[in-house]
Design a protein around this nucleic acid. Structure first.
Length: 457
DNA sequence: GCATGATCATGC
DNA sequence: GCATGATCATGC
């Protein structure tokens, strides 16, 4: 096959846009779509059938003459009928052995993925791929502000490999550019790393799902921009994202909640008053969670209140409820909980009680769950699925129902407990009975240990 | 005091 | 109407 050449990025972009709204089945002239389960086949089909290029696995960008990498990527409408990226965008596999000797500018990531031709298509469950259509396309180059963060993400990933910790890499370590697992994770997907004899899971660079959603909303669908926190690129470059935020809040450490409420003229009755305080300090009007940077990086703020003397945190930390009939259909690697803990960074807003029981702002800590603890959540998840499949055993004592889902004594990291509005707030079990909505919680002791960075058990 | 169940209150 | 953060209640 004679490969077609594209003379300019404009010509390439124009060609990509001509594919909008044409069902994939009409574009696929080589039968690539229906033949394999290879997830890459949509991209390969476009490369071959639409752009008339040979499919390859070079370290170079697909359109080598223009330095443009082609990515065909799915989006879906979420519950609120808004378009979101369906998944992270997986880029090239990280060769731990060679990447450590490179600088960002000559890294394999930058070499191949400097400019992306993004083609977003809408994905529908239970609909054949041949019916999918391209929604919109764009040539994407990282905005300067994002590139600062992406460089820092890359440094963080490579630093971990240099420390002999490639096996501890996690998507939650970084903000926009992640190191996501690639392959099933079994023995055959283990790769050598240069500074440790322990083999590490194969991982690939990826743009986080949250970042892909951001691109979709802001550059493809041209929706309204979110409020941004970062307003000083030079400081950001110098300090890094986390320290940039921490340093903005630091002058207020040690101030009492009362003082801060007064200073920022907040309504003390607001249930999220602690988060409002931090938002006010950062100079933003809306919620921290919906600012541009927090959405892009999938950072969830969580307020934590520690009893006097660092003794304990009263309550465990809750997460969204799950449907019993849905969780039993999940695979761990694609499960909600795995995705949550492997790709989310949390911003812990730490308040402490002093000896007069007065609450004061103590610290800010960015945290993501270490891989070994994600494995603990895996155990709780697996037990939960097992109990639901076998039929939840409910015993009633003094008018209270007790179930055999994994409780706090089952595991040091996480447990499952009710989380509904009342007893009538239920989901159906696979056998038709109804049970109060449940969710995963992080054990209060575990959270305390992570926040204080020491053993408390 | 802790584990576990239950439910309140606010805001979207 | 419901998700979510927060908190209370009970009994071992």
């Amino acid at each position: 096959m004679q490969e077609k050449r594209y003379n300019s990025k404009t010509e390439l972009l124009k060609r990509s846009k001509e594919a909008i709204n044409i069902p994939f089945g009409q574009i696929d002239t080589t039968g690539r779509l229906g033949t394999t389960k290879n997830k890459g086949n949509v991209g390969q089909m476009f490369e071959e059938c639409w752009f008339e290029r040979k499919v390859n696995s070079r370290a170079e960008a697909d359109f080598i003459e223009l330095g443009v990498e082609l990515k065909v990527t799915p989006c879906i409408k979420n519950k609120s009928n808004k378009y979101v990226a369906k998944e992270r965008l997986v880029l090239n596999i990280i060769d731990y052995m060679t990447e450590v000797n490179k600088s960002f500018e000559d890294s394999s990531f930058w070499h191949k993925n400097k400019t992306l031709l993004l083609m977003y298509y809408e994905y529908f469950k239970d609909v054949p791929v041949s019916d999918f259509k391209i929604l919109e396309t764009l040539l994407y180059e990282y905005p300067e502000k994002d590139l600062i963060v992406i460089k820092q993400d890359w440094e963080k990933i490579v630093q971990k490999i240099r420390e002999g910790k490639a096996h501890e890499l996690s998507e939650g370590d970084t903000l926009y550019l992640g190191a996501c697992r690639k392959g099933a994770g079994g023995e055959k997907d283990l790769r050598p790393q240069p500074y440790n004899s322990v083999k590490a899971n194969q991982r690939a660079y990826s743009l986080k799902q949250s970042y892909m959603t951001y691109i979709l909303n802001n550059y493809v669908l041209n929706q309204e921009k979110e409020e941004a926190i970062i307003d000083n690129k030079i400081l950001l470059e110098k300090q890094g994202f986390e320290n940039y935020i921490i340093n903005k809040i630091k002058p207020y450490f040690g101030k009492s909640q009362k003082e801060l409420i007064k200073e920022f003229k907040l309504n003390p009755a607001m249930k999220n008053v602690n988060e409002r305080i931090i938002a006010a300090i950062l100079g933003i009007k809306g919620n921290i969670a919906i600012t541009e940077e927090f959405k892009k990086a999938n950072i969830i703020p969580k307020t934590i209140r520690i009893e006097y003397g660092d003794k304990k945190i009263k309550e465990s930390m809750s997460f969204p409820t799950f449907k019993f009939t849905e969780i039993i259909e999940e695979e761990w690697e694609d499960s909600f909980m795995y995705n949550l803990f492997s790709s989310t960074k949390f911003m812990f807003i730490i308040f402490k009680f002093d000896k007069n029981n007065e609450l004061y702002l103590d610290n800010i800590k960015f945290w993501n769950m270490p891989v070994k603890d994600i494995e603990e959540v895996h155990k709780v998840w697996a037990e939960t699925v097992k109990v639901i499949r076998e039929g939840v055993v409910i015993t009633t004592k003094n008018g209270r129902d007790f179930n055999n889902l994994p409780g706090q004594s089952f595991n040091n990291v996480s447990h499952v407990r009710p989380h509904g509005q009342n007893k009538a707030d239920t989901y159906e079990l696979p056998d038709g009975r109804k049970l109060t909505k449940q969710c995963f919680w992080l054990n209060n002791k575990y959270v305390l240990e992570q926040v204080l960075n020491k053993e408390v058990r």
